[in-house]
């Protein structure tokens, strides 16, 4: 296992400097067949990250820049009347790619947002009564500006739930930033990257992730965590069953990446801020402090 994923992570780390943990989470999200939401200010490397991953995995990559005037048809595609054939023809939009970077998703109107998110959930698009399947694997990395910025439409909770993880990149540390300043332009480096994981291998790994063992003791802990969010006054509303499932899948992927075959509470704790942070509403906004009461108060045995 490790010999498959390690070169992937190493190559990624050589492009995006000083973000090992975030990269690992991003790959973990990918292995768990989930979509990723990156929330941060512009310019910290969100686009670079997604581009790098697409490159390393050999996936078709498409970036969609969301603006306030983007329409659903711009994303999905539209039926356009073909005069020669005298009939409507569907022209697939940028969504029909294996890896999508939905940049600044919260700049667009809710209508456009929901068009994307519905496609993410159902892995297919329906236009004028006809259903079109999306390619597989299908992986969306959406980026979001912090919600307090001007001119944003924050994603509603129901939409947030569709992202398996939300991560924050943050500024690079001093050494990484220096390296960045000294080194070559990132895009030229990305161009040089070679595919580390064939789509077939990826599908294989995704299958293996589901087979990771979760003992009943672990499930007890997981359920205690979920119950805590539903009962405690620390949170406005609790985690949904879908969130619970997401937590388990993400933890399994994390376990797999660590080269083990049984999920430990540590794995759950590792993915908890990214999986639960955006699904819970509490006084604070950053994921770590949101899940802090959970990590501290729910007993693990």
């Amino acid at each position: 296992m490790e010999n498959v994923l390690k070169p992937l992570l190493d190559s990624a780390n050589s492009i995006i400097l000083g973000k090992e943990q975030q990269l690992k989470l991003a790959v973990c999200c990918l292995l768990a067949k989930g979509h990723l939401l990156i929330e941060d200010i512009p310019g910290v490397g969100k686009t670079t990250l997604s581009h790098t991953l697409a490159r390393l995995l050999g996936l078709n990559y498409q970036r969609i820049q969301f603006t306030s005037d983007i329409l659903p048809a711009d994303i999905i595609g539209a039926s356009i009347f073909d005069v020669e054939n005298a009939r409507f023809e569907f022209h697939p939009g940028p969504l029909f790619n294996q890896m999508i970077l939905a940049d600044e998703i919260n700049r667009s109107t809710p209508k456009a947002q929901s068009a994307l998110l519905e496609a993410m959930e159902e892995h297919q698009v329906t236009v004028e009564g006809k259903t079109y399947d999306l390619p597989r694997p299908f992986f969306v990395i959406a980026t979001q500006n912090p919600s307090h910025q001007i001119g944003t439409f924050p994603l509603p909770e129901s939409q947030l739930d569709r992202f398996l993880m939300r991560i924050e990149l943050g500024y690079p540390d001093k050494r990484a930033e220096r390296k960045l300043l000294v080194g070559r332009h990132r895009y030229s480096l990305i161009e040089e990257l070679s595919v580390q994981l064939e789509p077939k291998q990826l599908a294989n790994i995704q299958q293996q992730v589901t087979e990771v063992h979760a003992s009943s003791a672990l499930l007890d802990y997981l359920q205690d965590l979920i119950a805590y969010t539903r009962e405690s006054t620390d949170y406005h509303c609790g985690l949904s069953p879908r969130a619970g499932l997401a937590l388990l899948t993400a933890a399994k992927a994390w376990t797999y990446m660590d080269g083990r075959n049984a999920v430990l509470p540590d794995d759950i704790q590792a993915v908890l801020p990214s999986v639960a942070g955006h699904r819970l509403r509490s006084g604070s906004t950053d994921s770590d402090s949101i899940v802090a009461p959970l990590l501290n108060n729910v007993a693990v045995s």
């Binding site: 509470p265 501290n296 108060n297 007993a299 693990v300």
Partner: peptide, 8 residues
């Protein structure tokens, strides 16, 4: 601590 895993 309550929320501390065995490894930690």
């Amino acid at each position: 601590k309550a929320g501390e895993t065995a490894i930690n």
